[in-house]
């Protein structure tokens, strides 16, 4: 799918929602078919593994602006 969409980043599959759960982002029963899906979120992780910035959606339309993400990346040391 990443290739079809021409995505320039790595697309990973978390079919069992294991990582989604570990990051505290599980939204149970929310997919159109009634399955568990993720709350949309972004985490900026530095080389040491510390989370330097995050955005967690509060509504399903809530998405961070790419310009905000780029600005946060620019602020990393």
């Amino acid at each position: 799918m990443g290739r079809d969409l021409g995505l320039g980043f790595t697309l990973l599959s978390d079919g069992e929602r294991r990582v989604v759960r570990e990051y505290g982002l599980l939204h149970p029963g929310a997919s159109p078919e009634g399955g568990d899906i993720a709350i949309p979120a972004n985490f900026l992780v530095d080389r040491q593994g510390a989370i330097r910035w995050r955005h967690v959606a509060r509504r399903i339309q809530d998405r961070v602006d790419p310009s905000t993400v780029l600005a946060e990346i620019g602020r990393l040391p």
Binding site: L11, R18, V19, E22, G24, I39, A50
Partner: peptide, 18 residues
């Protein structure tokens, strides 16, 4: 979100790509 706001370090993981 259950804990996503409080995470200080990113939990490690390994996942398959496409």
């Amino acid at each position: 979100p259950k804990g996503a706001e409080r995470l200080e370090t990113a939990p490690e993981f390994s996942l398959p790509d496409a």
